[in-house]
Write a protein that binds this DNA or RNA. Structure first.
Length: 594
RNA sequence: GGGGUCGUAGCUCAAUUGGUUAGAGCACCGGACUGUCGAUCCGGAGGUUGCGGGUUCGAGCCCCGUCGACCUCGCCA
């Protein structure tokens, strides 16, 4: 007999009846009848029922052992008898009649119950993560994560990609997010940075001739957390390809994502390749967002012309001053109580916007102040343009284009939810393409890169030389699923002259490029293939597949919102000796005392 | 750094809206019970109502401050 177990806890079936077995695991649940008691014994694989009777030598220990203690059980497999089958358990037809039980490790009073699906405070869960991870849902999420990563690897390798590891200690980069810095012991006053992404390395791999690279890559950014954004660190399926166009990149990754979602999504439908391509500009207009949730069928329309010079004075006047009007349809909502419309307006104000106008149609007749002032002709025009039904509602947002797009997008989401229009049990993918290369920074009063400065501008050098920078598009694309941005990627700019020119338009001197991106710009001078790639977020993929609203539910040991690991006590102070070695002197007395 | 929600037993929640000794379920401890699978029944222990101040005859509840958690804006090329 093995020292700890002959079978695991989900292994025994009625074929094993009569066998002498040894099981080890945690005491999940105990049901004590005084002269007879049951233990649900749990391990990673599942649950087996242990029966102990008064006359068994194991009885005394079974009676006193606490939940979540680790025990080893010797016994004989017996059939439960038809009326005592538990159909919810794979092992539900058998039980193990214990002849002896050994306590391998005793559990103290639990700060967090393992049994049951109740919700518990984040702080307690994080502090006792090892207990939390024993719980069914979280345990399953982490196993799912592992399987998803294994599947991604297999699918990438099948597509001819090769996995490489890139450095974790690297150089700080001037663009992008805030870096995590690591002080150098050998070079006092100098710092390594943890990579925000292996961006430059993967591009250098292309220059080095490796053709198709991927990596399940850890990425580090010192930015604040969100529900879908872990503070500090996260993982990406980072990949890059040589001699490709944007469509080649899409064609390579679509089957991987579609395949992995099909494999793990249960019965949910998954957008088949090719995924819809939506231009950034169109997405901002129709969905009020660059990460549209296509499960929501509502589409926003620009109705500025309907209101221009019209009788609804507030809007007409704003339009003269450059404002636009966007309309959000609310199908079938026309007959809803006025509180629905006023409530939505109030919500918009609470969000910090000017508010939302509305028309509620009843039997084709437009109601409310907007319709009254606008007049029947223009209302008819609106109905025609938006193809509104006789009992529809419609909301209006008016203001500067950027602000209004955002408000309209939020309103689209809210109205879709309120009217229960969001399609369920489906994963809707799309590509957002044609991002602008540059944008105007209102605060700094200058042209800046709008996303990745290393993207190839569409039209290349000619566009940079001849076009208004703000009109230049980039070969830059995001992949979006159900309103969640999974990744951004680009066809890279592999030509030094175009790179210098692009940076020049953003106000950077040639020498700045040479200094700050020397590794890459230098490499590009010795024969760089055209290349591009992307990097879907692994945590977010698992989050979608596990149907979890919070990214911490798919990460083994996540940090809290303040980027602390409550279990390990990170970040922590270090010894004076460590600081001295690094040549670091703390300016104040260190962390604030509580 | 700004905004929002919350904070009562180890955990999940309640307390008739300012009124007697702050209750219940789970967990824990003790007792009863031979077929349960959220076992059941009886009993026990467990509280500085996050902390500090104020208003009041009286505060878990109202006011001010503070601390903490989460959500969010900024930020995330």
């Amino acid at each position: 007999m093995h020292a700890y177990r002959s079978h695991h806890c989900s292994q025994l079936r009625k074929e094993n009846v009569g066998q002498t077995v040894r099981l080890s695991g945690w005491v999940y649940r105990k049901r004590d009848f005084g002269n007879l008691l049951f233990i649900d014994l749990r391990d990673h694989y599942g649950i087996s029922q242990i029966v102990v009777e008064r006359d068994s030598p194991a009885f005394a220990l079974a009676e006193s052992v606490r939940s979540e203690s680790v025990i080893m059980v010797d016994g004989r497999v017996t059939s439960r008898g038809a009326e005592a089958f538990n159909e919810n358990l794979p092992t539900g037809e058998i039980e193990v009649r214990a002849t002896s039980i050994e306590l391998l490790s005793e559990a103290a009073d639990l700060p967090l119950p393992v049994f049951g699906n109740a919700e518990y405070p984040e702080e307690i869960r994080l502090r006792n993560r090892f207990l939390d991870l024993r719980r069914e849902k979280l345990h399953a999420n982490i196993v799912l994560r592992s399987k998803v990563i294994a599947s991604l690897r297999r699918r990438m390798i099948d597509q001819g990609f090769t996995e490489f590891q890139t450095p974790i200690l690297t150089a700080s980069s001037p663009e992008g997010a805030r870096d995590f810095l690591v002080p150098s012991r050998i070079h006092h006053g100098k710092f390594y940075a943890l990579p925000q992404a292996p961006q430059m390395f993967k591009q250098l791999l292309m220059v080095a001739g490796f053709d198709r690279y991927f990596q399940i890559a850890p990425c580090f950014r010192d930015e604040d957390a969100r529900a879908d954004r872990s503070p500090g660190e996260f993982y990406q399926l980072d990949f890059e390809m040589s001699f490709v166009t944007q469509e080649d990149v899409f064609a390579a990754i679509e089957p991987v994502l579609h395949g992995v979602f099909e494999e793990f999504s249960g019965k949910k439908a998954v957008t088949p390749p090719p995924f819809p391509r939506i231009a950034y500009k169109e997405s901002m207009l129709k969905y009020g967002s660059d990460k549209p949730d296509l499960r929501n069928p509502l589409e926003i329309a620009d109705v500025t012309e309907v209101f221009r010079g019209g009788g609804f004075g507030v809007f007409a006047k704003a339009i003269e001053e450059g404002a636009v009007v966007r309309a959000i349809p609310a199908p079938g909502a026309g007959t809803r109580a006025r509180s629905f419309f006023d409530g939505t307006n109030q919500w918009a104000k609470d969000e910090g916007y000017a508010g939302l106008g509305y028309i509620n149609f009843k039997g084709g007749e437009g109601g409310g102040g907007v319709a009254k002032n606008l007049g029947p002709e223009r209302v008819a025009l609106l109905v025609q343009q938006m193809k509104l039904g006789p009992d529809d509602g419609v909301f209006f947002a008016c203001g500067p284009a950027n602000t209004v797009a955002k408000l309209a997008g939020l309103a689209r989401t809210r109205v879709g939810q309120e009217l229960d229009l969001i399609e369920k049990d489906t994963f809707k993918f799309c590509w957002i393409v044609d991002f602008p290369m540059f944008e105007y920074d209102e605060v700094e009063k200058k042209v800046i890169f709008s996303h990745n400065p290393f993207s190839m501008p569409q039209g290349e050098m000619e566009a940079l030389n001849t076009m208004n920078p703000l009109d230049i598009l980039a070969y830059q694309y995001d992949i979006v699923c159900n309103g969640i941005e999974l990744s951004s990627g680009a066809i890279r700019n592999h030509k030094p002259e175009i790179m210098y020119k692009a940076f020049e338009l953003a106000g950077y001197d040639r020498s700045v490029v040479d200094e700050q991106f020397s590794g890459m710009i230098n490499a590009f001078k010795f024969g760089a293939p055209p290349h591009g790639g992307s990097a879907p977020g692994v945590d977010r993929i698992v989050m979608l597949l596990a149907d979890e609203p919070n990214i911490r539910e798919v990460i083994l040991f996540p940090m809290n919102q303040k980027a602390e690991d409550l279990m390990m006590g990170a970040p922590s102070e270090v010894s004076p000796r460590q600081l001295k070695e690094l040549g670091i002197k703390l300016v104040n007395d260190g962390p604030k005392q509580p």
